[in-house]
Design a protein around this nucleic acid. Structure first.
Length: 479
RNA sequence: GGCGGCGUAGCCAAGUGGUAAGGCAGUGGAUUGCAAAUCCACCAUGCAUCGGUUCGAAUCCGAUCGCCGCCUCCA
C-alpha cells in the first residue's frame, strides 16, 4: 500500500484516489523565462517517479503540469516588473517568442533526464477566459472585491486561509517587507486580477477593464479544468507552500465549496554550498551546462539517491560518485545483454533473488517514494547478479535478471540501463575486429603490443576487457 | 520576530523505539601475463552536544550549539 506524505496533515497517509483507478495529479510547472536548472530537475524527476510508480501500480493517471507563460511581477505591491516582459526586452524577442523558446528548452532538458512528459501541459496564456470566469464566480460569492480595476481575494471570507503553511497572518507581520497596495481592504488579500498599466504588453480584456491574471489563479483554473474540483495529488516545490498554495486553496475552495486537494506533496530544494539554488539568487547551475560535464542519466541517478523531501546539496564529488554508480549498472547490463537468451530454466536461486529484490523495492517505494532505499535494493541485486554471472548459469537466468532491472530500474525509476553506445554503421564489426586482434597478440605473448593497443583504445574512450577464454571485448566507456 | 526543517563514516545518503541499508572513495584477498570489470573480507561500540524517559534510544522528551528554508517572484 502506497503511503505519501501529505503536507497539509503533515503525516504519511495511505494513498486512496477519489475514483480509483483514476488519479488526477497536478504539479506546478516552470515559469518559462530562462533555462532550467538543477532545481527544476530535482522537482520534476521526483514527480516523474511518482507518475511512473502510480502507472506501474496500474492507476490510470492524468498528469497535468502547467507552463507559466504569463509573467508574474517581481513583487507584491503593484510595483515591480513582469519577469517575462523584462527578459523578452533583454533578448529582443516578442514575449510569446521568449516563452516558446524556453518552453522548448525545458522539454528538451526534461527529455534528456528521461522525465515522461505530462499528459497535458496547459499554458496560462491559453486559459485567460477560464481565469476570468473563476474571478467572476468569486466576486458573485463575495469572496472577492473590485478596487480600481484590480480584483482582490478577500482573505477574511475564508477562515481556513493559511492552513497549509500553518501561518496565522496578522497585520503587523504582513506588509513589513513589501509595501501593501493601498487599495486592498486587508493587507493579507491577494490579487486575482490586475489592471494593466499603459506600458504593460501582456494584457487581456476583462469585465474590469484590460489587465492580466494574478499569480495564483492559473494553477487553480487549469488543474480544476482538466482534473476536476478535487485533485488527488498536487505537487510542487517547498517554497510554493506560502503564499502560492495557500492562495490556491483559498480561491479554489471558496469557489467550489469542495476540498481542493487530497494529497499535497512538496519536494525540497537543491542547495549549493548549503544555500538554496534559485534564479533570484543567481547561483543556479543550468542543466545545459551541467550536462556538458555529467550526462543526464547520471544527474537523474544523483537526484534519486536522496529523498525528494530532503534538500540535495550540489557538489562535483557527489555527482562523480553517482557517475561511478552508473558505470556499475552499465557494466552489469552489458554483461547481461551478451549472455541473455531463452535457453535453460531460471534457477531457484535467481527466482528467490528476484522475489526478494522486488519485495524490498516495493516496500521502499510504498514508503513515500523512498528512492534511496529502492536503489539500495537494486544495487543489492546488481551485486548478486554479478555473482550469478560469475558462476554457472543459464541464458534464461541472465534474461530474467535483465527483465527485472528493466522493470524496476528502467520503467519505475527511469534510470539508464543500456548505454551500449550504438556504434556508427560498421562500428560494431570494427570493434570486434580489434578485439580479435588483441586476443591474437595476447595468445602470441606479444603483451607490449597488446597493451599499447589497449592504452590507445582507452584514450579514445573505449573499455577493453579480457575474457577468461582468451578473447577480448571492447565497448565504449560508460559515462 | 513568526512558521517549518536539518545535523548519521573521508564524501553522498537510508534508517523514526530492538541493537547502524546502499553508493563512492580506501585497505587486504581471489581472478588476470599485467590491467579493467567482477567477487570475498575489512571499513561508525556509534548517529551535533548535554541531560532525561525506557528492559532497550540515531530514533521519544528537554536544554544547548551549528546550519538551512519560507514569511517578496522562484522547482
Amino acid at each position: 500500500m502506497l503511503k505519501l506524505h501529505d503536507s497539509l496533515s503533515r503525516e504519511k497517509k495511505e494513498f486512496e484516489p477519489l475514483s480509483p483507478p483514476l488519479v488526477g495529479m497536478y504539479v506546478c510547472g516552470p515559469t518559462v523565462y530562462g533555462d532550467s536548472h538543477l532545481g527544476h530537475a530535482k522537482s520534476y524527476v521526483s514527480f516523474d517517479v511518482l507518475n511512473r510508480y502510480l502507472r506501474y501500480k496500474d492507476y490510470r493517471v492524468r498528469y497535468v503540469q502547467n507552463i507559466t507563460d504569463v509573467g508574474h511581477l517581481t513583487d507584491d505591491a503593484d510595483q515591480g516588473e513582469d519577469k517575462v516582459l523584462k527578459q523578452a526586452r533583454l533578448e529582443k524577442l516578442e514575449p510569446m517568442e521568449l516563452t516558446e523558446k524556453y518552453t522548448r528548452s525545458y522539454f528538451r532538458d526534461m527529455d534528456a533526464l528521461n522525465v515522461l512528459r505530462p499528459d497535458i501541459s496547459p499554458r496560462a496564456s491559453g486559459h485567460i477566459p477560464e481565469q476570468i470566469q473563476l474571478v467572476e464566480k468569486l466576486l458573485e460569492k463575495d469572496h472577492a472585491y473590485l478596487a480600481e480595476g484590480n480584483v482582490y481575494f478577500s482573505v477574511d471570507t475564508f477562515p481556513d486561509y493559511g492552513k497549509l503553511s500553518g501561518r496565522k497572518l496578522d497585520e503587523q507581520v504582513c506588509g513589513v517587507r513589501v509595501g501593501v497596495a493601498d487599495d486592498k481592504r486587508d493587507p493579507r488579500d491577494f490579487a486575482l486580477w490586475k489592471r494593466a498599466e499603459k506600458d504593460h504588453i501582456l494584457r487581456w480584456r476583462s469585465p474590469w477593464g484590460e489587465g492580466y491574471p494574478g499569480w495564483h489563479l492559473e494553477c487553480s483554473v487549469m488543474s480544476m479544468r482538466y482534473i476536476g474540483d478535487t485533485l488527488d495529488i498536487h505537487g510542487g516545490g517547498l517554497e510554493n507552500i506560502f503564499p502560492h498554495h495557500d492562495c490556491e486553496i483559498a480561491q479554489s475552495e471558496a469557489a467550489t465549496g469542495k476540498p481542493f486537494v487530497r494529497y499535497w506533496l512538496h519536494n525540497n530544494m537543491v542547495t549549493v554550498d548549503g544555500r538554496k539554488m534559485g534564479k533570484s539568487l543567481g547561483n543556479y547551475i543550468t542543466l545545459k551546462d551541467l550536462f556538458q560535464r555529467f550526462p543526464a542519466p547520471v544527474v537523474r541517478l544523483y537526484i534519486l539517491r536522496s529523498h525528494y523531501r530532503k534538500p540535495l546539496d550540489f557538489s562535483d564529488e557527489a555527482l562523480d560518485s553517482a557517475r561511478s554508480a552508473q558505470q556499475r549498472i552499465y557494466s552489469l547490463t552489458s554483461r547481461l545483454s551478451s549472455e541473455e537468451g531463452e535457453d535453460g530454466e531460471v534457477s531457484e536461486k535467481v527466482r528467490s533473488l528476484l522475489d526478494q529484490t522486488k519485495e524490498a523495492f516495493h516496500e521502499a517505494m510504498d514508503d513515500d517514494l523512498n528512492t534511496p532505499m529502492a536503489l539500495a535494493a537494486l544495487f543489492d541485486l546488481v551485486k548478486e547478479a554479478n555473482s550469478v554471472l560469475d558462476q554457472e548459469h543459464t541464458p534464461a537466468d541472465a534474461k530474467a535478471l535483465s527483465e527485472y532491472l528493466e522493470e524496476l530500474g528502467g520503467d519505475v525509476l527511469g534510470i539508464d540501463l543500456r548505454h551500449e553506445a550504438a556504434p556508427a554503421a560498421g562500428g560494431g564489426e570494427l570493434l570486434e575486429l580489434l578485439a580479435e586482434l588483441r586476443g591474437t597478440l595476447r595468445k602470441k605473448g606479444l603483451y607490449d603490443e597488446a597493451d599499447a593497443m589497449r592504452d590507445r583504445l582507452e584514450e579514445l574512450g573505449f573499455a577493453v576487457m579480457d575474457l577468461p577464454d582468451g578473447r577480448s571485448r571492447i565497448h565504449s566507456e560508460g559515462c
